[in-house]
Design a protein around this nucleic acid. Sequence first.
DNA 1: ACAATAGTGTCTATGAGACAATATTCG
DNA 2: CGAATATTGTCTCATAGACACTATTGT
Lengths: 291, 291
Amino acid sequence: MEAQQTEPEFLAGYDPRAFDPVAVTVDVVALTLRADRLHVLAVRRGGPPYAGEWALPGGFVQAGRESLDEAAGRELAEETGLDAASLGRVHLEQLGSYGRPDRDPRMHVVSVAYLAFAPGLPDARAGSDAAGADWLPVDAVCSVRQPETASPRPFEQGRRPGAHGGGAGRRPRSSPPDGAPLAFDHGDILADGLERARAKIEYTPLATAFLGESFTISELRTVYETVWGTPLHAGNFHRKVLSVPGFVESTGASDTRPGSRGGPRARLYRAGDATLLHPALLRPDREATVR
Amino acid sequence: MEAQQTEPEFLAGYDPRAFDPVAVTVDVVALTLRADRLHVLAVRRGGPPYAGEWALPGGFVQAGRESLDEAAGRELAEETGLDAASLGRVHLEQLGSYGRPDRDPRMHVVSVAYLAFAPGLPDARAGSDAAGADWLPVDAVCSVRQPETASPRPFEQGRRPGAHGGGAGRRPRSSPPDGAPLAFDHGDILADGLERARAKIEYTPLATAFLGESFTISELRTVYETVWGTPLHAGNFHRKVLSVPGFVESTGASDTRPGSRGGPRARLYRAGDATLLHPALLRPDREATVR
DNA sequence: ACAATAGTGTCTATGAGACAATATTCG
DNA sequence: CGAATATTGTCTCATAGACACTATTGT
């Protein structure tokens, strides 16, 4: 590589296998609301490592054939059985990459994690190399660290498990007292995804991605209450949502009496054209998190 | 992989080269302030591809030997010549991953980009496989897409004489009309890093990472004005900074007359212990950006 | 009738931003 | 002295949040 040569010459002689391999996967934290609880898509691994355990859906990036975004969309479609049209209603964004050398016992695997917000979807189905797929309540698989205890991390990815992790670690190791842990470091990825989700609905209209084409303000409020884990004041929330330009726009229609216990018929709205909320919705009790 | 076997058996027989290779690199968007202008660390490539062109510092992740964070820190240290102690004052966070199959002509390369905020540093030095390294003014290498595409602003930092503003596309392909482009898709990565930086100093105290151990409120204001490209009201900014708990704390001392043109000696402050600013500092003219 | 919910009105505390005012130091 | 800057004061407006109130529907 030292001798001077033209770029075509160089490329012709380039050997893509001349270095130690690092594998690249995508993993998806797909969130949805079912029965007013936040659920995450998980697969039961069909083979080693971590055979039989729950993990985030994901897989290897097909070298030279797809971008990371495409790979994430593909993995999500495989596990949810959605066609391209339904996938269009799903919000998908990159979450972050995880690359500790020991996070996969097979070899050094760098995982690019994605975060998805999905409206109510049919039951999951197992993908090619999974023994099963299902939507799991997030608080069953991950200690729902309320925002207050979770101090905002200045990005800390390099810790190795096992060494001393037991007691005082800043990030409680993925599997808390309740529920089964996720394979690999997927518990950490899920925790990061949840925190990202909590933050993102503050300043973007993405909470609407958890709902159908049209929705009531109360349904939207339920999204916030579920994701944030905090009850919100119905009246103030209502006024606030309508006051943010571009957040929602009215369809003419009204609710057709779902399973409510009385009350007037709520008006229906659809997502507006804003991509950012201004002013943003504020999570309650942020002062406690400040320092 | 279908036959049932124990995990040790599986691992013993696992061949890390059994798949098409995808390479993993880290690239660093390292920002600093020099003479009240925002600069980015760049290297001149010593060999193909893009030999002789400017690029972000970066390199391949050493398989099995380092995490992504460690690789980013290593690359940054190699190019800046900083020791571990000085590096400790640099803020380094993951920015995002870029993996279009055609972004590197050699093969499919996934790059994990990092964003660094550095205080004034000595001149850069060329790393192992670079022909040179230097701090480049960001507006010379990247069309400074102001956050707003509209709204005339009294203070324009990014215009170079003779250059004309951006065209139409949402993301002008890495090389804009003015300035030398960066190799690969590094222009896109830089643009994303700048936007992240602008957003991050809103709600974190990281603007202090551009300054030394102690600083005046005016110096801090200059950081905001330079990164945001907007003049700020000195009086309101002053009061705001002091009112946010944990943002800055007073050292007893006062400024020792740098190169000012008169005025009282400003008091000196150091970074406080907050990790998030509450309430956040708001960028002016956000309404124009909302939709 | 009663309970539950949708939606609106009102009041208060807080913070952002526009100025203005004062003090300090350099040329 | 005059210009530039640091710091503080004051006023106004927008908004978040507490709370109350009315209207509408199911049981």
